[in-house]
Design a protein around this nucleic acid. Structure first.
Length: 431
DNA sequence: CCAGACGTTGTT
DNA sequence: GTCTGG
DNA sequence: CCAGACGTTGTT
DNA sequence: GTCTGG
């Protein structure tokens, strides 16, 4: 899914972001003084933002019907498709169709008719996804490791309101999530990762090729980190939206679900294990997540503790959670540890003293473990590395995909003994 | 023929 | 617009 | 997507 | 919970 994004690109940079480097670029509604008299230009004014939601304006790249092949139009449109056949009397609802499922796009009346001639590209620096956990929601920012823009596959349409105003709108295609992002959400936008893919989406004629490219983006350069929940408010804008935050006030289980990885240092395995178990059993483990740089990482801990003790999640759910964890682990070699310094972590730990984790607990925690943000699979330089890593992970884990996309069988014997009450220990990989 | 729908997400 | 349902 | 509201009567 | 607004 994709319902919020960052687009702070300059208009001039968007064609290049979409790999349109050669052909002519015509612009429509991208500046304050629209060329189209019937359009209120202010309604299409693009405002770069760290927090864009459906209903706002994006400069998208579409094919220029007038020119042959190379020419494109940089056309400011509103996110959230309003099909041309929408009743004039109707109030436009940009949230109804801001995504289109690629699996069914050629069957749905609203989208199918747009496939032949109304495909477009949407460039953004990243998008947001919320991980739900009961009443809590933790947003994550997803982007390319090297900062280059993502290019989404999209469809556009136009609609005339009762007042005679023309609305150009677009919808972003979605697909099932990549294996790396499955833990966070089961849907993701279709990302066209290479120039070839953008060429075909923009200018191709064979719809059979479209099926091939409307697939989850699996490369390991798509990475993520948690950001402030304040950005959930649509009016909250600015660089603060994409600032990485530590996970404060969440239990270990939650933090792991949220994509963090807990790693034990060589020394002190026993006490920390007790610490975790105690915290977890009381279900009040409010930990302040530190982003330390330590070279003494010994083992990766893959914890999957029951949420509350009173309501035991059924086996299927636990298995699901466990499966999700596998893709959150990352390489354990020394150079792969995030580079933020322990000093920085200690300084930032000061402003969290009032949380349930006491200063002492904080100290204990820091002395014993590192809880590291798993920023995607950034530690893996190549897809091959990532695949090799997955193969090496303990446990080697797959995920049974509801949508029928390549189910993988779990091979590792991760847990021993009691299935009903998994403990931290039961997730230790055995050396 | 006319009338009415046309969508995704997540959650139950 | 275009398809489905009555 | 998330955030925020969710109401009426009568008086100023 | 469910609707409206951004």
């Amino acid at each position: 899914m994709c319902g919020r994004a960052r687009c702070t690109l300059r208009v001039d940079d968007i064609p290049r972001a979409c790999h349109r480097t050669n052909g002519p670029v015509r612009t429509v509604n991208t500046d304050r003084y629209s060329q189209t008299p019937s359009v209120k230009s202010a309604n299409y004014l693009y405002r770069p933002s760290y927090n864009v939601a459906p209903g706002s304006n994006f400069p998208v790249v579409r094919r220029d019907d007038g020119s042959d092949g190379e020419g494109v139009v940089l056309h400011c449109m509103k996110w959230g498709l309003i099909p041309s056949f929408t009743k004039k009397s109707e109030k436009p609802d940009f949230y109804k169709m801001f995504n289109a499922r690629s699996e069914s796009v050629s069957e749905k009346a609203s989208f199918r008719r747009l496939l032949p001639k109304s495909r477009c590209l949407v460039a953004v620096e990243g998008f947001y996804e919320w991980k739900k956990d009961g009443s809590k929601k933790q947003p994550y920012y997803i982007h390319f490791k090297d900062g280059r823009p993502l290019v989404f596959a999209a469809l556009y349409d136009s609609w005339e309101s009762s007042e005679g105003e023309i609305f150009y709108t677009f919808t972003i295609l979605t697909t099932s999530s990549s294996s790396a992002l499955q833990w966070l959400h089961d849907r993701m936008p279709v990302i066209l990762g290479a120039k070839g893919a953008t060429d075909i989406w923009l200018n191709g004629s064979s719809s059979s090729k479209f099926d091939m490219m409307l697939k989850p983006y699996e490369d390991s350069d798509l990475v993520w980190y948690p950001v402030t929940p304040a950005m959930g408010k649509p009016s909250f804008d600015g660089p603060e939206c994409i600032k990485e935050v530590r996970m404060v006030g969440f239990s270990i289980t939650e933090c792991i679900e949220f994509g963090y990885v807990i790693q034990l240092k060589t020394e002190g395995n026993n006490p920390i294990s007790n610490f975790f178990l105690k915290k977890e059993s009381k279900n009040e483990g409010c930990l302040n997540f530190v982003n330390t740089n330590t070279s003494s990482i010994d083992e990766s801990v893959k914890a999957n503790l029951p949420k509350g003790s009173e309501e035991e999640p059924n086996k299927e759910i636990k298995e699901e959670q466990e499966l999700n964890l596998g893709y959150n682990s990352f390489d354990r070699s020394a150079e792969t540890i995030p580079s933020k310094s322990l000093k920085e972590a200690l300084v930032t730990a000061d402003d969290i003293g009032t949380q349930a984790s006491s200063a002492k607990a904080e100290h204990d925690l820091k002395s014993l473990v590192s809880i590291l943000p798993n920023e995607g699979t950034k530690k893996c330089k190549t897809k091959r590395d990532y695949e090799r890593f997955l193969a090496d992970s303990k446990p080697p884990i797959g995920r049974t995909d509801k949508l029928g996309v390549s189910p993988v069988k779990r091979k590792g014997n991760v847990k021993d003994g009691d299935d009903k009450q998994p403990t931290l220990f039961s997730y230790f990989g055995k050396k």
